[in-house]
Write a protein that binds this DNA or RNA. Structure first.
Lengths: 221, 221
DNA sequence: CTCGAGCACTTCGTATACGATCTGTAATAC
DNA sequence: GTATTACAGATCGTATACGAAGTGCTCGAG
């Protein structure tokens, strides 16, 4: 974990370090990332830190302004919508492309994770639920043979978890529907359904989460 | 054009310079990008050049190896397939999302570009055809309200043009079919067709180009 | 009391310098 | 003649240093 990374550069070290902190919300949205203190804390110069921050910027986890500096990306409502929309698009495709490669062992594992999610519905814990949710989908999209699409999925998830811990906490009814939709997706894959059908099921699953969030948000106003 | 960019940083200057050269194929695939000579040519130090190269790496235009350096990305056959597949995915979505915002003036302009492509079929020039092709699609996807998806489309196009000038040169029959499919897409948008229908038409249009390329490639072996 | 101009501080952007790593070549042992 | 090793050149990775740009505060005028 914290073992000295012998063969990775300092830039990479700084990148992982910052990524970790942002994902854990230790650096919340809007937090200013000043080069010097970070470099000091990590025992390196500002140059690798700067490069790490530019990478994080490219991934959308931080915003950057010339001659002003970087800060952890703030979640605009529309930003959330766009990210979810994009993730639905690429994750649906990744899931569909992965389907032919999935073994029944994979599917059993996904089903088992989904069962744990179902059991969690009673003693609801948004964080655990989100973790399991990611595990479930990971099983289904990781075998995606197209590395670009897979990378986009990773970035989408990364941005979401860096930005908003759990949509489920805000939308009570959504967790249950989510579990049911997982079941449907698994069935489609087991049946060897059409690629497009699987893609749309996975896509709409995510977009429904988005819609539910927006509806709940609307109701609160 | 070559006016001194007063308010953009040197890093940005280097980025545009390299991007331009790669797009124009002045630096072909596999060409080694050594920091010092580039910095020298641009009249700056290696630091901004390094940053520019890392950005290009993130966009997939160059490959990078630690302690070895960067070189212009080589086009693997599978790399081409994956890029086209991804572009079809995101461009289809972008086109579909743009459709409601398109004015009839936009559609007329696209139709006009497509007519010029049709006229070009006789005295065929792969390069001009490719340029018009990009113009045509640009009209249809630029109004996309989701900036992430739009950005992915730009990156896809950028990577393709940086990598392979024209698919049409290799696949004789494809250009004509392409023009006809453009017509279909325009009709769908004019009719106010379902978003999904438009998306799939635009997606399949690109994927057919990919299939045609693969078939021609296969036949050549 | 409010607003604007000037100044000081903070932070970034880039240049230069040096140490680390890799690649290719030439010499030597077998 | 071939394989292994040692060395030299090239190139990158990072540290340090300095100049540029931005931000906020203070002071003075109205």
């Amino acid at each position: 974990m914290s073992a000295a990374p012998a063969e990775v550069g300092k830039s990479e070290t700084a990148y992982r370090w910052l990524h970790e902190r942002i994902s854990r919300h230790e650096y919340g949205p809007g937090y200013r990332l000043v080069l010097a203190p970070i470099a000091d804390e990590l025992g390196m110069s500002v140059v690798p830190v700067r490069e790490a921050i530019r990478r994080l910027e490219a991934e959308g986890l931080v915003t950057f302004e010339r001659n002003v500096g970087a800060r952890v990306a703030v979640v605009d409502e529309s930003e959330y919508v766009h990210t979810m929309q994009t993730l639905g698009l690429v994750e649906g495709a990744a899931t569909s492309l992965s389907a032919p490669s999935l073994t029944s062992a994979d599917l059993d594992r996904a089903a088992e994770v989904n069962d744990r999610m179902r059991h969690l519905l009673d003693h609801f814990d948004a964080h655990s639920f989100t973790v399991l949710n990611q595990q479930f989908h990971s099983v289904l999209f990781e075998p995606c043979p197209n590395p670009h699409i897979l990378d986009l999925v990773h970035r989408g998830w990364s941005r979401l978890s860096g930005i908003r811990d759990s949509t489920f906490a805000f939308v009570p009814g959504r967790a249950q529907h989510s579990v049911e939709e997982h079941e449907v997706i698994l069935d489609l894959i087991r049946q060897g359904a059409d690629a497009l059908e699987i893609e749309l099921a996975a896509r709409n699953h995510r977009w429904k989460t988005l819609d539910a969030y927006l509806a709940a948000r609307q109701a609160a106003h």
